[in-house]
Computed example of a mutant assay.
Amino acid sequence: MTPSIPYWRLSGFYFFYFALLGSTAPFLGLYFAHLGFGAERIGELVAIPMLMRCVAPNLWGWLGDTTGRRLAIVRAGAACTLISFGLVFYSKSYAWLALVMALHAFFWHAVLPQFEVITLAHLRDQASRYSQIRLWGSIGFIVAVIGLGALFDRLSLDVYPMAVMLVMLGIVFSSIWVPNATPAERPELEGQGGFLRQLCRPGVLAFFVCVGLMQVSHGPYYTFFSIHLESLGYGRGTIGLLWALGVVAEILTFLVMAALLSRFSLRQVLVASFLLAALRWLLLGSLADHLGVLLIAQLMHAATFGSFHAAAIHFVQRSFGPRQQGQGQALYATLAGVGGALGALYSGYSWAGLGPIWTFAIASLAALAAAVIIAIPEREKQV
């Protein structure tokens, strides 16, 4: 990193932000199960934060592009996330928890799209080094899943809300430490037009449809993977380690992502990511009781999140002008939220009615559909 890039300050924010994801993705469903909710209610509660990504990122993205005060939005969003999640201590009823999930997610999902713009603004012509900063988010995720997995093996899940709030406090402090930056002005491409015109190009629309499908396919994984493993006899500490293994593979992918993108097109990287996701969900649904297969499936997280996310961030940056960067990143987050919410909802009902095998099989079909869409030859010049 060159001295002009605040590497550790940016990395520190990603560390705590994704430590929060590591605190929720593996354990939120377990916590709701601990409170006595059934699969359908768990699926609905997990879907609510994802549904908020349909609204919050676009609202905050528009505000960030209009005012240019992205860092202020990040800091306010981090503080309000902490405060609103604290309401969980008031009641554990379904209706109250649904409110808490919606309220804290409204502010949480304001944060990352704006911070992505700030990070890329700091990097400027070194955007290929984004993965070297983003990998610290993966490290934060690993620290959270391993640490909390060990903690919950020793203590009751009753301490879960307090543990999550400590991570949120880390996000608040790290956001204060980050210096501001604005995207460099660059000439608008001929015929580029405004945000909607850029969005309506065929390759861009195809990409965002695939983003939604990819997140639909992750529904069973983020909602029921830990519950699935616990039902197969794995301990919570082991479950945390298995989540961490996937993120280790993700980190290794981030380290080599610049080299991969210099050798392969974004379309090729995305197709490979979707196809490996389709295979991974089949393995998790049918053969998760075999530890060797489970380890291989977790290593595939390198593709289903690592290479997919890095390629997607580059695609969004390339597809939108400097005045639409916030809205582009927000739309990416929104489509991910729509897909994630639909994935959580369908998996809740499917899990109760059809069981793990068919639930993960549906996820595999969604990822396969994304691969087909993005692989259409006519899209090659746009993706």
Rank of each mutant, 00 (worst) to 15 (best):
V247G: 00
Y94N: 03
A121M: 11
L365R: 02
A272N: 05
A105W: 02
V117H: 07
A78E: 08
L294M: 12
R201M: 01
F16T: 15
S175R: 06
I374F: 03
Y7G: 09
E250T: 14
F16R: 12
Q325C: 03
I42A: 04
G12W: 09
I373E: 07
A363W: 07
M214G: 14
H122P: 04
V100Y: 07
L283K: 03
G149Q: 02
L252H: 03
I357D: 10
I139E: 01
L252Q: 01
G170V: 05
S226F: 02
A302K: 02
G137P: 08
Y349T: 14
A76G: 15
N180A: 15
L199Y: 07
S131C: 04
A363D: 05
G147I: 04
A249Q: 08
V209D: 00
S364P: 00
A312T: 05
Y234Q: 08
Q192R: 12
A361Y: 09
F173C: 12
L245C: 09
P49W: 00
A98N: 06
G12S: 15
L245H: 08
E44A: 14
L205Y: 04
P377L: 10
Q298L: 01
P220K: 09
P202C: 05
G212Y: 04
G149M: 02
T253S: 11
N180D: 15
M168D: 00
Y7L: 14
A288R: 11
E190T: 14
A56Y: 02
V167C: 05
W8C: 09
A352Q: 10
A121H: 10
H228M: 13
H301Y: 03
I376C: 09
G285R: 02
A102Q: 07
Y130H: 10
I374P: 01
V256P: 04
L30E: 07
L99F: 13
S273F: 00
A330N: 03
Y14Q: 09
L205I: 06
R236S: 13
S262T: 12
L120C: 08
T182I: 14
M1Y: 11
L229S: 09
V248N: 00
A102R: 05
E230S: 13
V100I: 13
L252S: 12
V88T: 14
L279V: 15
F173P: 00
F13I: 12
G191D: 04
Y222V: 13
V216N: 03
G22E: 01
M214L: 15
G219M: 09
G355D: 08
V383Q: 11
P3F: 07
F37H: 10
R129H: 12
I376T: 10
A79G: 06
D158Y: 11
A19Q: 06
M50G: 06
V172A: 03
P202A: 08
G29P: 03
D153E: 13
A110K: 09
A181L: 05
L166P: 02
T81E: 08
S265E: 10
T223C: 10
A121Q: 11
G339C: 13
A369Q: 06
M165R: 02
V172K: 01
Y346N: 06
S11G: 13
L35C: 05
